[in-house]
Design a binder for these strands. Sequence first.
RNA 1: GGGGGAGUGGCGGAAUUGGCAGACGCGCAUGACUUAGGAUCAUGUCUCUUACGAGGUGAGGGUUCGAGUCCCUCCUUCCCCA
Length: 953
Amino acid sequence: MTEQAKYDPQTIEPQWQQRWDEDALYRAKVDWSKPKYYALTMLPYPSGDLHIGHWFAMTPSDARARFMRMRGYNVMFPMGFDAFGLPAENAAVQRGIHPATWTHANIERMRGQLRSMGAMFDWERSAVSCEPEYYRWTEWFFKQFYENGLAYRNEALVNWSPTLQTVLANEQVIDGKDERTGQPVIQKLLTQWFFRMTKYTDELLDYEGVDYPEPIKTMQTNWIGRSEGAKVIFHTEHGDNPIEIFTTRPDTLWGATFMVLAPEHALVDVITTKSQRQAVTDYVAEAASQTEIERSSDDREKTGVFTGAYAVNPVNGERIPIWIADYVMISYGSGAIMAVPAHDERDFAFARKYDLEIRPVIHPDDAGEDFCVNEAYAGAGKLIHSGRFDGTFSNGEKGRKNPAISAVLDWLKEQGYGEESVNTRLRDWLISRQRYWGAPIPIVYRRDGGAEAVPDDQLPVTLPEDVKMTGAGNPLAQSDAFVSATGSDGHPARRETDTMDTFMCSSWYWFRYLSPHDNQHAFDAEEAAYWLPVDTYTGGAEHATMHLLYARFFTRAMRDLGMFEEAQSIMSEHGRDPDVLNMGEPWLKLRNQGQILGEERQGDFIRASGRWEGATKLFADVVDVIDAREIGEMGEPDPLAMAQLIGGTPTAEDAQAGMIVGEIVKRTENLLTVDVGNGRLKTIEVIADAQVSIPTIPGVNTVNQLKHHLEIQRMSKSKGNVINPDDWVQNVGADTVRAYLMFGFDWSKGGPWDSKGIKGPRRWLDDVWELVVNRSADGAGDAATERQVEREVHQTILKVTNDLENFSFNTAIAAQMSLKNTVQAAVRDGKLSADGLREALRNMLLLMAPVVPHIAEELWSRMGFEYSIHQQAWAVYDAAKAAEDVTTLVVMKNGKPIDRIEVAIDISEDEAKQIALASDGAKRVLNGDAPKRVIFIAGRGAQNVEPKVNIVI
RNA sequence: GGGGGAGUGGCGGAAUUGGCAGACGCGCAUGACUUAGGAUCAUGUCUCUUACGAGGUGAGGGUUCGAGUCCCUCCUUCCCCA
């Protein structure tokens, strides 16, 4: 064996990457003679180093894009950076680096790292959202929306830090405090820019024509939260102030015994009586310090304050008190509700606490007089205490499906008290951010107060470079050069200092990939006509609601503003149906991957001492963790040896005295399950102020670190469990890392990285290398083996094709490993001819090419085939060659296998039953008796399901 | 709190309409080769049982000739929340 004959990924991978680059192998160019395929994967945020999570998201997507290409599609697979956002600004504040400097340095580094993946990214189509040539168009889109009534200004609650005089993002607020300074944060109303997303509510609920995972559709549907009900107008008792409420249960209007306004409701100030003013003011201030998630939590005690004012219930003229309470949100519906404690859980809890009347108005058939005493009743029944509607049946459902609601809706409209209405949880998209590192909103405010858009020829409004980043206030507002502008009236004007939410940048980036340097249009219509829409979009499921919904809204808005019309007419010219763009769906198929977690920590030993409670539970106040690696050096982990190592002896006396030494097998919070040897398990509860020592975490450790240390965790720098893909590329090669990520996990689920498990895929590649480079076959081969190899080759082609189609990467690779095992054994036993081996290897390499592009190319070239393997047609499946001659008939007793017999593949039902009943297994279990029933289950050859006969006794 | 996932060997995971549970890989065990082994090769590896055999997919119930898969109740755990 020569030196060269060894598989050396570190040498061949960069060589092929360079060659592909030089040959522009992955340039995606419009070619109307070929079917197109636009494969898109979510673009990364340039946070610093490329993370193994990026590899996990991108390399399977790349493999599938390559697979589609080999199947004859003209594939575009672009990559870019979502480069505006908070981390760059944090870096600026903390380290005094300008966000642009920080971001561009990160992008440069990550581009280099991305190249080492060997992905088929077309770098000519790259886009970076923080560059003026990109955000010019982000601004342009805003303008288009603004000029067409899709963007407007309104007041909204924001997280406001009084200390920093700045608005904070939700992720900057932890437990009601600024995460950086620990200062309190309050909720404050501020004028903000919105996109009229709710205009598209009904369309966003429609998934006709797109292929999304069911859970994503469910999540989006729940997120949008469409509910049918009624708007009803109440008035304050003197009839002076109307209060609009929304209810999904207008059939319970007669049970409204009070009203509740959100603390931020505009009327609160107006209607509060003098005697209640102080209490109300205090309560409003208190509510401002709570986040909406806290406020909407059901298990928290309901609180509220009486305003002193009364309203009149229009349906029965009753006078009912008006309260304010933080469980009513200003942002949902009209920020006011009628409270029907008898039939609503939250109203019930509130009424109970403040001793308000609970009046049942729906009487279930089987109930006595005492229902609605202990809990709210939301089921079906007849209306009572409801005037003319007494006796009407309410089936407990919402909307017109409920006859009582339907009747009341009609009556409300007739009387002019209210009308049928639909409410959604989805709100308009708040795009304003009071921050520097984002696309500026291209608006100026004239001296007369009017707002106007910046003319197109002045776009983009660029970010000023000389700003001070202190973390306090908005740097743009502090830049006079930025703020001062001139209005269309020629007078000085003030520039808008809000920038846009970064979700705005990521709502259209796949359009920019079409023509990233076009300075006349956001995207080129010729390119769009060919490539749009995106065929497959892959990325994390954590974007199920926000990013994906924004993008779906955005694309529909673009459609309605006529932005696809030119592309559509070009499509028609080329005989392509332009209707696909009328859906307004950005992508036709969506698939999500899971998350790669830090390496699992296992086999850690522990020494704990404390006080016994009972025979198996120890309350520990001193806990030492012993690193698993130390144990490894000792060979067999044995509690006695362990005890010596760490200076304890788990003798009966020690155990009696409250000491445990053993292996941690499970952890839940601060409860550890410890194996003290021979599978005997003890429970240790680590007390809150225990003295903890963990060798890998320097300094004083606490029980909290213990919890984290033993957890399978998201990777983070602070936990020291980050897997750096560069190291692994160095160790085992990019192909192995790619193969491992695709093989070792359920892609949609993710899981913990396992640095030992990666050996498997590397061995696979080593073995294939060996077969191609260092093994040869001669002679005629064994006919049966030749046939078996050929059969398995074609079965594998079918399986890999289906699996890649279905994003089932792990099984696609498992099948290829199996085939390799078969071929390897046949070669070893000298039963394969040279031709047989060559044909098997040719197909194997074609199947491998999408997953492990470098080694496939190298071996393809060494076998003397034409460059490049990535330009070859996919392996061709031949059903005749894949067909089996024989199969196994499984004989079962009551569904449990009792015997197996080799039979012809096309065995008939009668034959199978006969053979089964005559089998040894059947004779044994029947013992001469007749079976109750005999059931034949036909085999399904293509799916590897054997025929079966189930004998029921 | 609301919403959405997921629970299968020591581990990652497989099982396409309900039809041989544990493919493939890691780890482990035994043997071979070796100065050496975190290399390589061979064989084995769900549990109990000497065997025959029996049991087994988070727990409990149900439907079915047959359930990891369908239905009900419960438990655990992960993700998302403008």
